[in-house]
Computed example of a mutant assay.
Amino acid sequence: MKIGELSRLTGVSPRLLRYYEEQGLLVSARPGGGHRRYAADAPETVRRIRHLLAAGLPTAVIREVLPCVEGVGADDVPALAACTRRYLRGQLDGVNERISELQRNRDSLTALLELSERTAA
């Protein structure tokens, strides 16, 4: 299928599909005329990419994890093989670390605001 058709089927812009290809997430062939042609399973690959992006995974991690997809789980979420645990655990640890940092920031800002409000009163 051509890029326009893949875009229509997935709701992903052609520009973004080309980006996925540049990142090594999506593969196309370029027969004779040089136009991109995607395999019949490309829409499913794009859906998997979108789910993994929605989970906050960077494209470098998705490139490593994508070959480990073993189908579709609940709510059309990709079912991942055990080989992905290391990547996913690292990403989750990073998210938890950022959340902790944001909570510390919030606490500091709250304290500063309370102090300034007491001082102004």
Results as ranks from 00 to 15, higher is better:
91 Q>D: 04
67 P>Y: 13
90 G>A: 04
87 Y>L: 14
63 R>I: 12
85 R>W: 15
44 E>I: 11
78 P>R: 03
15 R>Q: 12
42 A>K: 09
74 A>Y: 14
69 V>C: 14
81 A>H: 10
9 L>N: 05
58 P>S: 02
111 A>Y: 04
79 A>Q: 07
84 T>V: 03
78 P>F: 11
32 G>H: 08
74 A>L: 14
11 G>K: 09
32 G>V: 10
115 L>E: 11
88 L>D: 00
62 I>A: 04
56 G>P: 13
55 A>L: 15
28 S>Q: 04
102 L>H: 04
30 R>T: 04
109 L>M: 04
51 H>N: 09
25 L>W: 08
41 D>P: 13
4 G>I: 04
37 R>D: 02
74 A>S: 11
75 D>E: 06
1 M>V: 14
64 E>G: 01
32 G>Q: 13
49 I>A: 00
102 L>C: 02
55 A>Q: 13
117 E>R: 15
28 S>T: 02
24 G>Q: 12
54 A>N: 07
24 G>V: 09
1 M>H: 02
101 E>R: 14
57 L>A: 01
7 S>T: 09
117 E>F: 12
16 L>C: 02
47 R>G: 03
93 D>N: 14
116 S>T: 15
120 A>Q: 04
26 L>C: 08
22 E>C: 02
84 T>Y: 10
96 N>L: 14
77 V>M: 06
16 L>K: 03
78 P>W: 11
4 G>D: 03
26 L>Y: 13
121 A>G: 14
6 L>V: 03
57 L>S: 00
107 D>F: 02
23 Q>L: 07
27 V>Q: 11
2 K>I: 10
114 E>F: 14
3 I>F: 11
103 Q>M: 07
40 A>R: 05
104 R>S: 03
88 L>I: 09
70 E>G: 09
106 R>N: 01
48 R>N: 11
7 S>A: 10
39 A>H: 08
49 I>P: 05
79 A>K: 12
91 Q>C: 09
20 Y>S: 00
6 L>S: 04
117 E>H: 12
72 V>P: 05
59 T>V: 00
121 A>C: 10
10 T>F: 09
35 H>Y: 15
59 T>A: 08
19 Y>K: 00
94 G>L: 05
120 A>I: 11
84 T>Q: 06
42 A>I: 10
82 A>Y: 09
71 G>M: 03
30 R>N: 05
